[in-house]
Simulated assay, not measured.
Amino acid sequence: MTSSQFVQAVTKDADFDEGVLNAPVPVLVVFRASWNGPCKQLAPVVEKIAEDFRTEVRVVSVDIDDCPETSRRYGVRSVPMAVAFEQGRKTGSHTGLTNRETLLRLMGLG
C-alpha cells in the first residue's frame, strides 16, 4: 500500500503531524512495511475504505522503515497496525491483519 488516489502516504517523520494530527477530519493510519505479507493483504481493504469514505475520513499509510520515529512514538511493534485519530488524538488501534468491519468500527463508521 503506497500513496494512491485515496490513500495518502506519509514518507517522512516530519510530515506525520501535518498529515494526521492537524487533519480537519478523522484519520485512519495504517502502519505497514512493504516487505510484510499481511500488510500486502490488507492494502486493498484499506484502499476501498479510503475510496468509500473519502469525504468523511482521511486514510494515511506509514511505512515503518521510512518513519521510525513516528512508529516508535505510537508503539508500533508489529504490522500491520491501524490507528484511529480524531482532532489530533489517538482514539483506538488494532494490530494484525483484519477485515473491513473491524476497521470501520475503529473509525466509528460501522
Results as ranks from 00 to 15, higher is better:
100 R>L: 03
99 N>A: 10
63 D>E: 15
95 T>G: 01
74 Y>A: 02
94 H>E: 09
43 A>I: 07
76 V>R: 01
69 E>D: 15
77 R>F: 06
81 M>I: 00
51 E>L: 12
48 K>Q: 15
66 D>V: 08
45 V>W: 01
68 P>C: 14
95 T>N: 03
87 Q>E: 09
47 E>L: 06
81 M>Q: 06
70 T>N: 05
82 A>N: 05
50 A>T: 07
53 F>K: 13
78 S>G: 09
79 V>M: 07
90 K>G: 00
72 R>E: 13
44 P>L: 11
58 R>M: 05
55 T>F: 04
53 F>E: 10
71 S>W: 03
48 K>Y: 06
75 G>K: 05
76 V>Q: 01
70 T>K: 03
83 V>C: 08
45 V>H: 03
64 I>M: 14
63 D>Q: 13
91 T>N: 13
83 V>Y: 02
93 S>C: 06
73 R>P: 00
66 D>G: 10
83 V>L: 11
53 F>C: 04
48 K>G: 06
59 V>L: 08
55 T>H: 08
50 A>G: 09
93 S>P: 00
92 G>F: 03
89 R>D: 10
88 G>W: 02
43 A>N: 07
92 G>T: 09
80 P>Y: 10
97 L>H: 09
45 V>D: 03
95 T>F: 02
92 G>L: 08
49 I>W: 04
59 V>S: 05
43 A>S: 15
42 L>G: 01
95 T>Y: 01
65 D>S: 14
72 R>Y: 02
46 V>W: 03
76 V>T: 01
58 R>K: 13
55 T>G: 06
73 R>I: 00
96 G>Q: 12
92 G>I: 07
43 A>C: 06
82 A>Y: 01
94 H>M: 07
84 A>D: 09
99 N>R: 13
59 V>Q: 05
78 S>M: 12
59 V>G: 04
86 E>H: 14
65 D>Y: 10
98 T>P: 02
68 P>G: 14
49 I>P: 02
73 R>A: 14
67 C>D: 07
99 N>G: 14
87 Q>D: 10
95 T>P: 02
62 V>T: 09
56 E>I: 00
94 H>W: 05
100 R>Y: 13
77 R>E: 08
64 I>G: 09
86 E>I: 00
84 A>N: 10
75 G>S: 04
64 I>F: 11
53 F>I: 00
77 R>M: 08
89 R>V: 12
65 D>K: 13
79 V>Y: 05
50 A>N: 04
56 E>S: 14
43 A>P: 04
97 L>R: 08
80 P>I: 09
87 Q>C: 03
74 Y>G: 01
50 A>C: 08
55 T>Q: 10
56 E>F: 01
99 N>V: 10
82 A>I: 01
52 D>Q: 13
84 A>S: 15
86 E>Q: 15
65 D>N: 14
56 E>T: 14
87 Q>K: 11
65 D>G: 12
76 V>F: 01
99 N>T: 13
86 E>V: 09
89 R>Q: 15
95 T>R: 02
77 R>S: 07
70 T>I: 10
76 V>K: 01
66 D>Y: 10
68 P>F: 14
51 E>S: 15
61 S>I: 12
54 R>A: 07
43 A>Y: 07
60 V>N: 09
51 E>F: 13
55 T>E: 13
51 E>I: 07
52 D>F: 05
90 K>C: 12
78 S>E: 11
69 E>Q: 15
66 D>W: 08
53 F>V: 02
49 I>R: 04
44 P>N: 12
62 V>K: 05
